[in-house]
């Protein structure tokens, strides 16, 4: 066992820089940002229409009144890019091309470096992709602001954990390219399934009890639904944040183990 296995002490200074680099890298693609934003808004309008139609004349459905449903939609649309539901699979491409050997050979902890880059991206998207759809919702629809001040703190923590969980899943999917010929297909399946399972398309509370229970044993609700519940103050924030924390830790640890065996594979096969 090395004394500083994660390079945390020796190279601690490089990770904040990677965060900054991640922020900057994404800010270069302004047209892509605007295109993504317009898509989020168009789909958001449709989801609002659908949910309000479901609620109809009733005061609330599955615990959602109109304002909570609208808040759920616009916050969710803002979170798509912010927690990076559907992008961030560049590492798999590097595994396929073999460039990953360079990445893993660098004197840094690769997982931590990637996480740092992803947090930088998160920062950028928080401003550019989270705020505008939410602002749109606030301006044009009845919006439900948190009633308790502490909710803001909980939500910040919860959002950060959602990013960690998303990163953890993506990191595992990325590294799966070491073993699976069809990691690309796996990523496609994750892409099409994650939205619904995370509670983006409709609230998970719309599902029958049994399905909900099963879903709660997976990390998917930790990507979105947990954070959305925290914001609209659906019960105590503790179970949601706890669920996210648990999955973030589990996924990051799993990523570490998988990375180690990927490194071993790389050494044995010579890249």
């Amino acid at each position: 066992m090395r004394a500083d296995p994660w390079g945390l002490i020796n190279r601690a200074h490089c990770y904040p820089r990677l965060v900054l680099a991640g922020f900057r890298r994404y800010s270069a693609y302004r047209a892509a940002m605007l295109a993504g934003l317009s898509t989020n808004v168009v789909f958001g309008l449709m989801r609002v229409g659908l949910l309000l139609a479901v609620i109809g004349e009733r005061p609330r459905v599955a615990g959602y009144d109109a304002a909570a449903a609208v808040t759920y939609v616009w916050l969710g649309q803002g979170m798509i890019a912010t927690v990076s539901m559907w992008s961030g699979f560049h590492v798999a491409e590097r595994v396929r091309s073999g460039d990953i050997a360079i990445d893993l050979g660098r004197p840094w902890d690769f997982q931590l470096a990637e996480l740092a880059g992803d947090l930088g991206r998160f920062g950028y998207h928080l401003v550019t992709r989270m705020v505008p759809p939410v602002a749109f919702g606030v301006l044009f629809f009845p919006f439900r602001w948190p009633q308790r001040l502490s909710t803001w703190g909980w939500f910040a923590v919860s959002l950060l954990l959602a990013v960690m969980v998303s990163f953890g899943i993506r990191y595992l999917l990325n590294l799966s390219a070491f073993w699976l010929v069809e990691s690309r297909g796996l990523i496609s399946i994750y892409g099409v399934a994650s939205g619904l399972l995370a509670g983006l398309v409709i609230p998970l509370h719309f599902f029958p009890e049994g399905i909900r229970t099963i879903l709660w044993w997976t990390p998917f609700p930790a990507l979105m639904q947990d954070s959305l519940d925290v914001f609209v103050e659906r019960g105590s924030p503790l179970p949601a944040v706890g669920h996210q924390l648990l999955w973030a830790v589990l996924l990051l640890l799993a990523g570490r183990l998988v990375q180690r065996s990927a490194e071993r594979k790389l050494v044995v096969q010579g890249g």
């Binding site: 459905v61 496609s188 399946i189 099409v192 409709i202 719309f206 599902f207």
Partner: peptide, 21 residues
């Protein structure tokens, strides 16, 4: 499979909606 799952989940969405209305 990914395509079938994508379509299937849209269907699930409709069913879930009608679970509530």
């Amino acid at each position: 499979c990914a395509q079938v799952i994508a379509g299937g989940l849209e269907l699930v969405t409709i069913l879930a909606v009608f679970h509530n209305t």
